[in-house]
Design a protein around this nucleic acid. Sequence first.
DNA 1: ATAGGGTTAG
Length: 588
Amino acid sequence: MRRYCVRNGIPFLSLSPNSHSCFTAISVRIFSNKSISKFDCGFNINCLDDAVILFKQMVTMKPLPSVVEFSKLFKTMINMKHYSAVVSLFREMQKLGIPINVIILNIVINSYCLMHRVDCAFSVLPIYLKNGIPFTVVTFNTLLRGIFAENKVKDAVELFKKVVREKICEPNTVMYATVMNGLSKRGHTEKTLSLLRLMEQGNNTKPNIINYNIIIDALCKDGNLDVAINLMNEMKQKDIPPDIVTYNSIIDGMCKLGEWEKCKTFFSEMVNLNIYPNVQTFTILTDGLCKEGKVEEAKEVMGYMIEKGVEPNIVTYNSIMDGYCLTGQLDEARRLFDFMINKCIEPSIISYNILINGYCKKKKLPEAMQLFCEISQKGPKPSTSTYSTILQGLVDVGRIGSAKNIYAEMLSAGYIPDLYTHNILLNGYFKYGLVEEAISLFNKLEKKGENTDIEFYNVVINGLCKNGKLDEAHALFEKLFSMGLLPNVKTYTTMINGFCLQGLLDEAKDMLMKMVGNNCYPNNVTYNVMVQGFLRCSRISEMTIFMKEMTGRGFSFDASTTKLLVNIIGDKPLVLDMIPELHLKNKK
DNA sequence: ATAGGGTTAG
């Protein structure tokens, strides 16, 4: 029997079946992301070359290795992110007439999806038909994931409906989970919940713990903890006990609302149920505390977790470092950074990004730039986020020209800007009045038709409003619905503000009605924007009524409203007297 | 041998 063997990193065929250092093709052990110190523990594929060499050997073997071996190889290549190479090798297989099956085709589809080439993924479908290979639920599930990854929510939902309606395949819990996750991560919590309810009605697809966890996490991220906890109780009743993921989501939601007492309650509850907090649970706590500026308490949590035998990981340290940056303790952040290195925990690119961001937020651009240069010499490879962070820093100090240069540098270095990058740039262009530049970039990006989300449109709508192009902004807003993008509270608030700035109070009020009608509820910013609109138009009595509703719901005037009040009616005590609540707030 | 859930930075 022929066997594979590796010596000095070079794989070759061995005909010695009894050699201990050799493994059969079936038991080929392939390691990708984990680095392996010894070669004698199996067949290691550590780079693309290894994979290609192995492939070349495999295709010359007689008899040919089974398609299972090819699948394993391809999967390993996917783990190493060599997606396009998988496609090339697959083409090679086809050329050589090597038999294929549904699994290897699904893997090819996944490769295209991971390359963000859903269009190409679809072009694989005819190969199934030509070879008489039936699609499986995995085929469509992989496609759905790919479509969502390109933010094409509407297309994904359409495909899902088509699959169900035309009974192309029977959706299973995984497919529901994929669609639910795709929807929930893009703000469609309502639809995600509807899908859970739809699953409950069917006989074959009763929701499992993963389906519940997806919607619970989405609700928690929305701050809708009441509904999340109701669902958790529902799970318990249905004999699907919540697990560590469920509790971590709930605790994260509670932390972000600053509900520390409830955090503790759930923490105790999970421990009582023998679900032990893990490093993620504790990191949720350190992160939550740091985000509130309570870095010292976060450090106490870290001490506690170590006491309990749970080792902090890089995410934990990063969260605390970010806490230091947020509270302006940049030196402390830098100490911690060095501490990590001393503990042999290599700072990740995220650690660098946090520190760079810390400097940028303090407007210490030279320090930020220096760190940026440092990593290009040693340390982790900069990420798209690193560039975005620097861009944001430059935009914040008004250095649009430098930002443009860095952006160009980023492109020429082969980085693919993401939504954040473009949002920062567009926002910068609009903010400094480079409207032409902004619109031209927007048109270019929109023409590509992918990688846009609601935040992207929020930036553009806001920019148009602030630059006197309300009509264009409004038209874009209306277009969102036909694109399957759901305006969020920011979108509506931006439009309301746009109307208010032009004195179009009635349009602003209509928009407020519209958002509530679409199950999107005004937040503090929305209320403040409305109040400022009323103020600017001196519609004080309407404002008073509106304000009663606002304070009744627990919202209050923010700094910008107070400032406007001082400017407009600061010396008119008579008007102030008409607004008793405000009087109270100002005295506080 | 292929597809699904929770933590960090912009």
